[in-house]
Computed example of a mutant assay.
Amino acid sequence: MSTGKVHKGRNDFPEDPTDVLRSVLDLTPAGEDAATGELLFTGETPPQARGRVFGGQVMAQSLMAAISTVDGERAIHSMHGYFLRPGNALLPITFAVETLRDGRSFSARRVQAIQEGKTILSLITSFQDPVSGLDHQSPMPTGVPDPESLPSTSDRLGRMRHPIAQEWSWARPFDIRHVDPPIEIAPDRSEVATNMVWMKTFSAMEGNANLHRAALAYASDYTLLEPILRRHGISWVRPGISVASLDHAMWWHRPARADEWLLYVQSSPSAQGARGLSNGRIYSRDGELVASVAQEGMIRVPGDLQYRVKNSVQSLFLKGAGRPRR
């Protein structure tokens, strides 16, 4: 439940955080590559506290570039991407789209997201004409609290005097509400390999089904590695931890709007070799399975005494940082 109005620690965040999403999904055509014939687009990157481009942003922009080259009746139904290099939030990104196939029912595109001549994300996506066929789905979990009964990120972190906490609270385009105990600043001692969040944009999004699917890809990258951290009793602020997405796959099953509440149900079947795998299912509020997701991430966690001491000291500091100023 909301704890009331929380004052921002900064005043330079957008009035409507979803404007960030609108701006990054609005790509600019940049002509054609003279050597390859690929269609080129450029995209905007908002300021980011860590200096790295959010992976969900690059995926969503790559999808928007591909969408621009496909007949409007065909909807995205799958995407497979590899994160090859970290993106620099201070540099422009160019998206090069290669047409792999345009068949009677399906179209396929390859997109390379490029900075300074190097690929940071390589993605293939497929589109399909609307068609009827067999239909079944895994059921939505029951007994889940309504999103309105849960605190928002700004309710929980908005008072913290830390740039990342402030960015998560006021600059994320999506309202993310954890069903399970959040692990941003404190671990979950239950050590279960699951996670569940409600999510939607803060304001209504105009656009067709493909734009909403690209927006959903953006949000799908937020919390997908949390089942791995939760399973091992680790929070996002563990000193010395290094986390990075390696690849991301997504399948869209049924229409859904990114500006309506969606339940993101996540689990991790395995972690090993400094890598962990997470799976996700995204449901509409009325119980339709709208998308499935899978991601492998690199997770390196120092375990020596020095980092355990730093972890304890940092926990005490963060508790103090979250107190209101007098």
Rank of each mutant, 00 (worst) to 15 (best):
S312D: 12
H253E: 03
V144W: 14
T201K: 07
S154Q: 10
T45V: 12
G158W: 03
R172L: 11
A35D: 13
T201R: 07
E288K: 13
L246R: 11
A108M: 10
W251N: 06
S235L: 00
S278E: 11
Y222S: 10
I176S: 14
V313G: 10
D129F: 13
P163W: 00
R110E: 00
I234R: 00
L262K: 00
S23F: 03
S126T: 14
P227I: 01
Q266M: 14
R325P: 04
R110L: 05
I241Q: 03
P147Y: 08
E44V: 02
I176K: 10
S68W: 00
R177T: 03
V237I: 11
W261D: 04
F317Y: 09
I299S: 08
V309P: 09
T94P: 02
E296K: 05
L63W: 06
L100Y: 06
T125Q: 02
R52H: 12
A165S: 15
L27M: 11
L318G: 11
L305F: 13
L229H: 08
N195P: 04
L224W: 11
S152I: 00
N195G: 14
G233M: 01
A215T: 08
T28C: 07
T99H: 12
P227H: 10
R326G: 09
A258Y: 04
R326A: 11
Q61M: 01
T119H: 08
G87I: 01
G117I: 03
P324T: 04
A75L: 06
A271D: 14
L39D: 04
R254C: 09
N279H: 15
M79K: 01
M64F: 02
T42E: 13
V243F: 14
V131S: 15
G31H: 12
G117M: 06
V309L: 12
T69Q: 08
D180G: 04
I299D: 12
Y307P: 03
H253D: 02
R275K: 13
H253M: 01
D188N: 12
H136A: 12
W170R: 05
V313D: 15
G297L: 06
D71W: 07
D146S: 14
N195C: 05
E38T: 06
G56S: 11
R308P: 10
E15C: 06
E167S: 09
M196D: 04
D175F: 00
G143L: 03
T94M: 07
I185L: 15
G280P: 08
L262H: 07
